[in-house]
Nucleic acid binder design. Structure first.
Lengths: 319, 319
DNA sequence: TATATTTACATAATTAGTTATATAATCAAT
DNA sequence: ATTGATTATATAACTAATTATGTAAATATA
């Protein structure tokens, strides 16, 4: 079995499965060795009942970390074997289960087996340099904090965000620029006169007026756009920032924002302003992360605007 | 899930099973995240084919540590999915399997997923103090040397041999003394005149002539017997040692032998002799362990005897 | 007080493996 | 050349869990 030499740690799940299967088989044989009429899979339920006394099905399930149907099935089998019995409770939905006299007798009879198995595991662990028991416990904790899935998702985004390229606008991106913006605006608000003007003729209304326009590419595909409008010699406005919903979570907004701010600096701006809506919490958070601060202003270019923000470029530091 | 706090390490198998199931679920979601049309259980086979090229079903099974039917099933599914195909070999029994063009393309396409998963596992392990990967590897090795089952069996014997009691013969043990001896003698040889005499009337032919007789008890049950026959003032013979087949492996023979030798010393013996047959290898080994050495002798009490052994008691040391 | 929701459990279907067994091809030994 | 053993694979049946779904009782809500 050379598989794991080649896969490396990414296949730790498969490797654990194999070791688990091997242990399960050994445990099976151990039960046979002690000639006790007992199915290994009953162990967690049996132990829970012996240790904690009568319990409801779902309590047992939580205690042993199985699904509820699994416990139901095991209890059924153990009842047939005469090891446990149903106890009535006032709540007729509940199935309160406890050990019978035979079950209690078995819980004593089985003690030497527990003892021997424990001793065997202890001597095995004494031969090892790495503590498997502690390692498992640690993984349980770490996965509780953040699942392997979430960790992989993060790695994916990290890798993909490295492949995002921010490049200057070209006319071939006109339809992307328009549709990506139209999509988010009409999801939350309504398209207005000013929107149509900028989105239909960005060259005329943005670039020719001394502004800038950038697109974010991922694998040759436009996944985000952002523009910088010239207000006056020292004031620019960040506007029409939009990211494809399916591409979100890859820091594209952040990359676009950084580029826009850098460009403003290049153009000699001392401040960058923006207009937004407080309902767009993720966007506001991004702006704050970029260094923008809320300011009061009477003039709104669009009906949807209810917050103005500003970034002082003299105090701007690269983060 | 408090189970494992109470069970201790004896339930390490159950605990591993739970962690494995959890990882399996996460891995399932990871495959979905990458939107590749691929079943996680195909991974080991797919990886083996991508890494090592065309292989026979059983070769793959060995490589990945699965059963052959498991590989057969997976290959069938992967063939339906167009990822692998059957290649003809001269031996018509063999099913040589390799990746198709689509399979090879996928093996490239899937690389980022491998990379991200590997990175996620690495960062997780960096957060841990105990190395799960190394711990698993170590357990695989240690279990290869001696399985958990064998380890538990050893513990069981060790514990049980502590519960063996060697006590002097009483008349109520007559039938046990006879039957246990009769059983092994007639298994390997034939009962002879001398056997019947000693086994039917041990008090008359052993004890009254200055010999000794002991029985080994395990839980009130006779599991072994051994006698010491007086030959002359300074010479005794160890004879009629027998242990129940189902009780073997608990050092009962050793305990009986030690008792017999100690008793001979007490009686003032300078040597203990015995007669046996070289076919009984385990018995001969035990005698040697007790300190007996092979000697030549012309006189055989039984037809089955083909070896004589002797223990010089002046040189005997307690081991 | 009627109705909707939640809870506790049972049942059915599914999953990813296993062991046991069947079958055909090949090899070895008369 | 025949027979028996071995090998390579396929198929069937089983296992120990899961998820999905159904149902009755209890609780909350209008």
């Amino acid at each position: 079995m050379k598989l794991f030499e080649k896969t490396g740690k990414m296949a730790i799940g498969s490797r654990m499965r194999l070791l688990t299967a091997r242990l399960a088989e050994d445990v099976n044989n151990i039960y046979k060795l002690y000639e006790i009429d007992f199915s290994p899979k009953w162990f967690p339920v049996f132990f829970a009942l012996a240790e904690e006394g009568k319990q409801k099905i779902t309590e047992i399930a939580t205690y042993i970390g199985h699904s509820q149907p699994s416990v139901t099935k095991i209890v059924k089998e153990m009842t047939t074997a005469g090891l446990c019995a149903h106890f009535k409770s006032s709540d007729k939905r509940q199935n309160t289960v406890g050990l019978t006299a035979k079950g209690i007798a078995l819980s004593v009879q089985i003690l030497p087996q527990y003892e021997d198995t424990h001793a065997a595991v202890e001597t095995l662990m004494a031969e090892a340099n790495h503590d498997l028991w502690e390692a498992i416990q640690e993984w349980e904790m770490l996965l509780e904090k953040k699942s392997l899935f979430d960790r992989v998702k993060e790695e994916k985004r990290r890798r993909e965000s490295k492949q995002i390229k921010i490049i200057p606008y070209q006319d071939k991106y006109l339809s992307d620029f328009k549709s990506i913006n139209e999509q988010w605006i009409s999801t939350y608000f309504e398209m207005e006169e000013g929107d149509y003007r900028l989105l239909n003729e960005p060259r005329k209304y943005i670039l020719d007026k001394g502004g800038k326009l950038f697109v974010a590419l991922y694998k040759e595909k436009v996944v985000g756009v952002c523009s910088l409008l010239k207000i006056d010699e020292h004031t620019y406005e960040m506007a029409k920032m939009a990211v494809l919903p399916e591409a979100q979570g890859r820091h594209i907004g952040w990359l676009l924002g950084k580029k826009i701010v850098a460009e403003a600096l290049e153009l000699g701006a001392t401040r960058v302003i923006l207009e937004s809506n407080t309902a767009l919490k993720a966007a506001i958070k991004l702006y704050e992360k970029l260094g923008f601060k809320k300011v009061e202003s009477p003039s709104n270019s669009y009906k949807r605007v209810d917050i103005h923000m500003e970034l002082e470029l003299c105090t701007y530091e690269d983060r």
